[in-house]
Design a protein around this nucleic acid. Structure first.
Lengths: 359, 359
DNA sequence: CTGTTAGCGCCTTCAC
DNA sequence: GTGAAGGCGCTAACAG
């Protein structure tokens, strides 16, 4: 009774038996035709198709899942890095959803931080066939649990030792190195890395860790001074942190920013502090194009390789679902950083110029 | 065989029968205890709970759905308004996911534009119990189909005649009226509405339609000149459109913008055109706080009422799922527009000042 | 090529 | 308070 009430619009739903009866065949044959798992004569096919067209039929997903042992759904686990999702995370969701649909998977999105509950519901209740896990840290309990349970998954980001798992990650280290080199080429000699919030770094958040080590190494390699500050993910924090370094030690002329939401505040503090971007101070970041373009002057930015990340993640996962014996695979992605003055259509916006003050 | 291979980590999954055997009761009793649908003696309860704790058990979602007739999932249908999701849409996803989880629902996200396929998969295959539909237009085929099929749903946005459906919407008309009044109070006498892309308007996109009529009515009411331009959802288009009106008829001093992604370009064109925001030109918009804060100077903005929209949408839907007989309900939300000079913590940022040039 | 039989794992009668 | 039987709708294994 309850099911019937739930769908008040039509009477009862059309089931595979209705089609079978209407077409004068058995349910098995209908199923066989639909799944294509065994040959069906042209004549029967014709009749079944006509019946389906007449009555309107779609196999019930729950029944299919129960019988077939797969839900044709995957889950996307995104614990929000900040208070809300970053532009990257957003685009990533959209792209994964799109890509998954192309492989005939639905996507269940979870942004919860309560790993236990999410895990129980999605994995233990077998709501999904596989998982894409975001914001993976050096030591990540979620990864451990997924490995234990044998659930197919792909990590976006890496653990400290990712050899046993499939992952996709950005090569933050090389990327930041190219940022530093670029700023050095513009004759900057004193740089600041505005990193993610401190707690994220401490938690072993990959981008924060790898960007920082890449930055410090590159500064040494290229013979420029480099220091690191941490900053909460909001404009107010960006303003505060930047004001502080302007007050404490204003010798810097270039900033590398790993913190999208702080950038607005950083701009404001610099401007109020008498800096003129890009004439005496340069900012460069891995950022969403929408941010980079909305800022004035435009931010020097490497575009987030969202598409490649998302497509690769889905591809790795669906491959593993199709063949669970597949060995784990890691993909390191370096955004195409061709740092140069560019038009709006080009991948990189360069607002940075040579510093004037250091002279 | 295949199912077993799919979960390589552990042997076979623990099922309700395993618990029953382990506890020395029948599966019926275990189920009864878990669903709480009939009394179970304290002693049996104890034993079952111990067995569950020992073996680890969670009811399989597909089997439950098949037997019980509900999936405990809802779908969020977001056709991207522009090339990618807007900040509002993003936050909306996150908030809906969170809120749905609080009511014990999972959320399937779809960003596909191919309504037919999405509809077939989610509704006809009964993957979800209900739907939240975004970007609803005046005439919306998706709404018609959902009504026909009797699927419980909530529209975010309204059709031209929304009396038969449940919906949540922003009161764009009143909102834009308050924008116009604010600009008039700042002594602006010549305004431009930079609206959504023309195709969206033509398609009967509610925010575009209602903002525009609200704008034109308000201009008449407050005795200021007002014209409307359409603009694609990207900075380049914003730049182009603004440059054009600066060239054609530069008498305007205030802009009302209904197009997040264009704002960066609008700022740039105005600046290049010699305008100084906010000294001689004011911009006001319904925008994400992250945008408003990232711009320099900060944008005058009413915050997107994301939370209220999302929470209301989920509430309406879950209520309807619990009791399908519930009558449809509409909610019109007016963002709290207390337009004033503000600090960073206040809901509204006012960068706008009285125009100087009109003097 | 097709139909019959037997589950998938759970919930829901109906008996006791 | 508890158990046995049947069904949700579909697919897989086994016969023909």
């Amino acid at each position: 009774m309850e099911q019937v009430v739930a769908r008040q619009g039509e009477g009862r739903r059309v089931r595979i038996y209705d089609i079978a009866r209407h077409a004068g065949v058995s349910a098995t044959t209908v199923s066989a035709m639909l799944t294509g798992k065994r040959p069906v004569s042209a004549a029967t096919r014709e009749r079944i198709e006509r019946s389906i067209a007449t009555l309107g039929y779609r196999a019930n997903a729950s029944a299919k899942a129960l019988a077939h042992g797969r839900t044709d759904s995957i889950a996307l686990l995104i614990p929000p890095a900040g208070r809300s999702l970053s532009a990257f995370e957003v685009d990533f969701i959209a792209r994964v959803v799109q890509q998954a649909r192309a492989s005939d998977y639905d996507v269940l999105v979870s942004t919860s931080l309560e790993e236990e509950k999410v895990f129980a519901r999605l994995v233990e209740e077998e709501r999904v066939d596989g998982i894409i896990l975001l914001e993976v840290c050096f030591e990540d309990r979620r990864v451990e649990r997924l490995v234990e349970s044998g659930t197919p998954f792909v990590a976006v980001g890496r653990t400290a030792d990712p050899r046993q798992i499939s992952w996709v990650d950005i090569d933050f280290s090389s990327l930041v190195r190219s940022f530093v080199r670029h700023l050095r080429d513009l004759r900057h000699e004193d740089l600041v890395l505005v990193n993610t919030p401190r707690p994220l770094y401490d938690r072993g958040y990959g981008p924060a860790r790898r960007a920082q080590s890449g930055f410090l190494d590159a500064c040494e390699e290229f013979g420029v001074r480099g220091r690191v500050v941490y900053c909460d993910a909001n404009p107010e924090a960006g303003f505060r942190v930047t004001s502080e370094i302007l007050a404490d030690d204003p010798s810097f002329t270039g900033l590398v920013v790993m913190n999208d939401y702080a950038i607005g505040g950083i701009y404001q503090a610099l401007t109020l502090g008498g800096r003129r971007i890009p004439h005496d101070t340069s900012i460069i970041s891995l950022a969403d194009a929408r941010w980079a373009d909305a800022l004035s002057p435009r931010l020097t930015a490497a575009p987030q390789p969202v598409d490649e990340m998302a497509v690769t993640a889905v591809r790795l996962l669906t491959a593993k679902l199709a063949d669970p014996a597949l060995p784990p695979e890691g993909h390191l992605i370096l955004p195409p950083v061709t740092l140069r003055e560019s038009t709006a259509a080009a991948p990189i916006r360069v607002a940075a110029r040579a510093p004037e003050r250091p002279r």
